[in-house]
Nucleic acid binder design. Structure first.
Length: 246
DNA sequence: AACCTTCGCAACCGCAAGGAT
DNA sequence: CATCCTTGCGGTTGCGAAGGT
């Protein structure tokens, strides 16, 4: 599979990557890290553009990327996150470790979208398809931004808000996992008073992060963007939110 | 066997955001 | 403040494989 190889007017190679090119890219990144994609191809001895190298690395070569069939659980997750976030593949990918946005997008477009349609669900609204209204429905993000108060949210602001909320959930989930890992690894042996206090404070921290995650999820699922902007109790988004509104 | 259609997925393209100058 | 450059994102395309007629 793959695209035919060709060269553009500048002599830059396009199309399918060879195993040798993969090896060169991985070797370079392992040695020097990922920075300055524009200069990377020349330094790595590749006749590719930086964008192509970046894409190849992020979607295929980066360690930890999971390829192959999606599990039923993963498919459920994609559908669930899509119902919350719409076509924000990068935000969805942040919720699904080891899957790339490209992979998720491909699977959605080639498989899940059709499956939902076959089962009578509109893949954009995630609501049952009605004979007359499917074409006039709006996406989740559009639904969020169409409420009725005096605020008006730019589309850019809408996208940024939802991505921010998704990133919030993701980072808190990571923090929670980290705390749990530390707690689990420190439990079997004897602990002194200081460690007990540390564990206790971690448990508190875990509770707080858990609460924030719940708030994040509720923000996405239950409140309109205008309501979010009005509710100053969500202080940690307050300043940022204000910047989203014109 | 030949042809056609659908599927799966890698890769490309254009655009926008954000940082650097 | 304006412009340029880099990076990231989402939509789309190209193409081999698989399946159907």
């Amino acid at each position: 599979m793959g695209r035919t190889t060709w060269f553009d007017v500048d002599g830059i190679k396009r199309g399918e990557w060879t195993a040798e090119e993969d090896r060169m890219l991985v070797a370079y990144i392992n040695k020097y890290g990922v920075r300055d994609w524009g200069a990377l191809p020349k330094r790595a001895g590749l006749h590719r553009c930086g964008k192509s190298c970046r894409l190849r690395w992020l979607n295929y070569l980066k360690p930890g990327i999971k390829k192959g069939k999606f599990t039923p659980q993963e498919e459920d997750d994609i559908i669930k996150f899509h119902s919350l976030l719409g076509n924000r593949w990068a935000a969805i990918a942040k919720q699904m470790p080891n899957r790339t946005d490209n992979d998720i997008k491909n699977h959605w477009n080639s498989c899940l979208k059709k499956r939902l349609r076959r089962s009578g669900i509109d893949p954009m609204t995630h609501e049952p398809i009605k004979a007359t209204s499917s074409s006039t429905r709006s996406s989740p993000a559009q639904r969020h931004s169409s409420s009725t108060t005096s605020f008006s949210l730019s589309s850019t602001g809408s996208v940024r808000l939802l991505n921010k909320l998704a990133a919030g959930i993701s980072s808190r989930k990571l923090a929670l996992d980290r705390i749990r890992t530390v707690m689990i690894s420190s439990e079997p042996r004897e602990v002194d008073e200081e460690e007990k206090m540390m564990i206790s404070s971690r448990k508190e921290e875990e509770k707080v992060i858990g609460c924030f995650m719940e708030i994040d999820k509720n923000l996405i699922t239950t409140m309109s963007l205008d309501e979010l902007a009005c509710d100053s109790s969500y202080y940690y988004y307050d300043d940022w939110l204000r910047g989203c509104f014109q």
